[in-house]
């Protein structure tokens, strides 16, 4: 029973990872790629760790997977934030389809 639940969680996680990877190939500029990839891949890996937790139960390996989830969440979101701010300061313009840019005034 636990094995079935863990397999379902892992399958959902890999579907989200697949969406993230399609996004990283298809979307037109750096900002949108970062958008799609960070959200989908982070949620997918959290789901895989939930599957590991259900497979091992409440033992040492299961608790280790539980500890890994908040670490993964904080590190990936903060990494994405720092990377997108660095991209803007590096001089990459927003894509052709973009309609608004309030940050330009704040930088100068």
């Amino acid at each position: 029973m636990n094995n079935m639940i863990s397999l379902i969680f892992i399958t959902i996680g890999i579907l989200f990872n697949l969406l993230g990877c399609i996004g990283i190939i298809r979307l037109p500029d750096t900002y949108n790629r970062l958008q799609a990839a960070t959200k989908c891949v982070t949620l997918g890996c959290c789901s895989i760790f939930l599957g590991v937790l259900f497979h091992f139960g409440f033992s040492d390996a299961g608790v280790k997977a539980l500890v890994a989830i908040p670490i993964l969440f904080f590190t990936s979101t903060v990494g994405a934030h720092a990377l997108i701010r660095g991209t803007y300061h590096f001089g990459i313009k927003l894509g052709e389809k973009s309609v608004k840019d309030d940050y330009k005034d704040a930088v100068q």
Binding site: L19, P28, K97, V99, K100
Partner: peptide, 17 residues
Amino acid sequence: VAYRVLHPAMPIRPGIV
């Protein structure tokens, strides 16, 4: 995000607010 990625025309309208 999945809807925007999988749609053939990619309905995106990005910007910074």
